[in-house]
Nucleic acid binder design. Structure first.
Lengths: 339, 339
DNA sequence: ATGCCGTACTGAACCGGATAAGCTGAGCCA
DNA sequence: TGGCTCAGCTTATCCGGTTCAGTACGGCAT
């Protein structure tokens, strides 16, 4: 079963390959009548253009790359990436771009993947996730001149285009909400410290706690896994002067924290209020459902894809701000019980 | 910043393009000394072959496709797909194949994607997930002669290659385990009924319940979402003669079920035992941790990818069996409390 | 010296499109 | 009627590899 080529269409239509190409691309050079005839024949014999041939002569791959650099165990559990991917995908497939995915072990492997993709002309641009502090990938991408959109920031994105959301404002909102409920001893279970957004949230947390005079505020470090999130919670709740509220850097750790609290005989939200970051369906799965800082992650991905396609098309590499995560109060937060 | 081509390498090495091609591909036609010289120069100037040019002349895309056809909200939450993808990916990147991903709305859209991929020669083969009963995709792929490996079965995969695991045996093991604990009223919250593996599990459940004389066994239908899983559980636990144990078709529904049970004042495992399918980190996140039917999903994906590459290479389309999911008992199962 | 063979390479065709440059005939105006 | 323009095509070249059909040359047997 031979796949039809542009020459087959041309032969059936009684025109040259060039005419067919003009017709297919909506370019001037053929009459409207001929164009319609060619398009009809193309549809009839089930013709579609070889992506390879197109890529070769048009010097465009028709694909964008996404390299994910988290250990497999974190990757799978967090709904974040899958939601992001489906958003990216929706935008790309609407413009018939393909998404090429690669899971890598560390930033150096990721840089190697970028170099290979660039060398092979396999992608027209890439989306960069999980921005780090002093991220080597940024300068590597700048050197390659590979169009890229960094999902993260603000700051630390070099000359590259980026899409960021105001995590600092969101975290501030969450803390102010807890304080308004009457909490004074608030802890935060943070994600990996080398990630830029963790740093931003940490700074924001320190700032708002100082502003509101929360001297007992404490941040403990974790790695986004449920296991570590649970351990961190156990540590916090066992300490003297334990917090009455905890803010988690993702949903998975928040759920683990909830279950540790319940295991220790504490009631949520009576003894402990919990706020999760990344409002996924997981937060509504547990009892009580978790108050969360959320946003439309699929829309975030779609936005990033649109921005990347614009950069690929040669538009200036802007720093675009996306929606700020907002707080959705649910059953896991309440005024602290008097002790 | 111009990317070097094979002609640049040839010029520097003082040989023809053809010689460079032979050298790079490890084919006879150049002396060992020349080959080494060419390879050194290629490395030195950072040359890598354009995937497009290669695809065009070698008629191979160097990529495989994966179309995911679940509503975005299910996709994100279940760790299954991300784990599968990272397994697939590990295998593919080791052989420098790329993975092209597409999220689609329904089976017809998926067929359209396959047709487009085939027409554009964008992929060398595809992995097919979520096999359905009377799956239109199977015959569509057979007609296209697009190499494919169906992840699912046994049965219903037509002439296509497939990779399956013995869900029937796994489910039987779970039911026998619950019966050994003393349970007689066992319910099952099933996933989407149109999926082939749901059907297989349903048949196996009916068979084992009949064999063991469990007349009160009941299956209720759900859709893999936590919301529906919770609703189904609420229905089950409100009924007269409520079950003492429930087996869920995925981890997300099991967690939702756990939280419904706790909300209704039942203790797990005292009043209700819970078994989840798909043993993901989520199962260890909650309290009590869930007894689950699990397997190494990343390995499953890697296996599927290997099989697909073999089929792409022209090997016969075999039906390969993967590891059978096994039961990991945890805190959510115990003998039923006497009433 | 001649013929033959195999090795190591070269040159050119080809994959399937995009596109610049060239050609043709109809329509218009002077 | 001749010259000009321009729409509507065709032709040829290019993209960067792979591959097949030569070709040059050294070594060996006759």
């Amino acid at each position: 079963m031979k796949r039809p080529t542009i020459a087959d269409v041309a032969r059936r239509a009684g025109v040259s390959k060039g005419a067919v190409s003009y017709a297919l691309n909506g370019q001037p050079g053929v009459s409207e009548a001929t164009r319609q005839r060619i398009l009809a024949i193309a549809t009839e014999i089930g013709f579609s253009r070889s992506s390879a041939a197109r890529a070769l002569s048009a010097a465009t791959a028709g694909a964008v790359g996404l390299a994910l650099c988290r250990p497999a165990r974190t990757l799978g559990v967090e709904p974040f990436f899958m939601a992001l991917i489906s958003g990216v995908e929706a935008e790309l497939s609407a413009r018939s771009y393909a998404l090429t995915l690669q899971v890598v072990a560390d930033p150096d492997a990721e840089i190697a993947v970028y170099q290979r993709w660039w060398g092979e002309r396999r992608v027209d641009g890439v989306l960069v996730c999980d921005l780090r502090t002093d991220d080597r990938r940024i300068s590597a991408l700048e050197q390659l001149h590979l169009p890229a959109v960094v999902i993260g920031g603000p700051g630390g994105t070099g000359e590259l285009a980026s899409l960021w959301s105001d995590d600092a404002a969101a975290l501030t909102e969450a803390v102010e909400y807890l304080v308004a409920l009457g909490h004074r001893r608030i802890a935060r279970v943070a994600g990996l410290p080398e990630l830029r957004h963790t740093e931003i949230r940490t700074d924001a947390f320190a700032a708002v706690c100082q502003r509101l005079g929360l001297v007992d505020a404490v941040t403990v470090w974790s790695d986004y896994t449920g296991e570590e999130g649970g351990r961190a919670t156990r540590r916090l709740l066992s300490s003297a002067g334990r917090p009455t509220a905890v803010v988690y850097d993702n949903d998975v750790m928040a759920i683990a924290g909830l279950s540790v609290a319940q295991e220790m005989g504490l009631t949520v939200p009576g003894d402990l209020s919990i706020v999760a970051w990344d409002d996924s369906p997981l937060c509504r799965l547990v009892h009580p459902p978790l108050t969360a800082l959320g946003r439309d992650i699929a829309a975030y991905g779609a936005h990033a894809a649109r921005h990347l396609l614009a950069v690929v098309a040669g538009q200036p590499a802007g720093r675009v701000q996306d929606e700020t995560p907002h707080l959705t109060p649910r059953g896991s937060t309440a005024p602290p019980r008097q002790r």
